[in-house]
Each structure stands twice: as structure tokens, then as C-alpha cells.
């Protein structure tokens, strides 16, 4: 992908996007199943999840939702964050390759 034109389709299926998505979601999901498995790897997902529930807890329309329901929007947001990270990563790589 480096040096090539970046398209949305390429970003969506890019390994960097899925790696960052997996790092955000799976360590936290594991620790939710068994909290003894909570590791520093879960920290980014943990902070993001807590932030989402803090915001949700003050919004009148969603404040009574159980926190378990936040897993659905959490996964969507994680994918969005991963897309942004992936796009940034490939943009940097492309720029670096062109400069060289």
C-alpha cells in the first residue's frame, strides 16, 4: 500500500485498521469475561469504554440503559477510531515513502 494511492476501500480492509481494532476491543472483552485477565493492553479500550459510559450517564435519553448495552456502540466507535488511526498510519507511510 505504501506509495500507492490510498482509497477508502483499501483503508477499510487494511491490516493496520484491524490490528488497532483488535487491540482496542479484545483485551477489554477478555477482561470483561474474567477480570483477572485485565492487562495493560486493555487500557485504551477501557478508557474509551469508561468515557462513553460517562457521557451516556448524563444524557437524558440513554441514561437508564444498562452499561452492558454500551458494547454495541463501543465496537462501532472502536472501528471508527481504528479507521482514523489506520488512515493516519498509511498517510504517514506514503508521505515517508514519497520523500525518500
Amino acid at each position: 500500500m505504501m506509495g500507492e494511492r490510498i482509497t477508502l476501500r483499501k483503508i477499510i480492509i487494511a491490516p493496520a485498521v484491524w490490528v488497532s481494532f483488535a487491540l482496542l476491543v479484545f483485551p477489554l472483552a477478555l477482561s470483561d469475561i474474567d477480570s483477572r485477565l485485565f492487562s495493560p493492553l486493555a487500557l485504551p479500550g477501557y478508557v474509551l469504554f469508561v468515557c462513553m459510559t460517562v457521557i451516556g450517564d448524563i444524557l437524558p435519553k440513554v441514561r437508564n440503559f444498562g452499561f452492558r448495552l454500551y458494547w454495541v456502540p463501543f465496537i462501532v466507535v472502536c472501528y471508527g477510531v481504528s479507521l482514523a488511526l489506520g488512515a493516519g498510519y498509511y498517510a504517514l507511510c506514503r508521505r515517508y515513502t514519497i520523500q525518500r
Binding site: L28, D32, I33, S35, T53, F67
Partner: peptide, 8 residues
């Protein structure tokens, strides 16, 4: 119960 399994 937030992000903790019952055993924990």
C-alpha cells in the same frame, strides 16, 4: 458490576 465478572 461495571466491567467486572461475577466471580471477581
Amino acid at each position: 458490576e461495571f466491567l467486572l465478572d461475577l466471580e471477581t
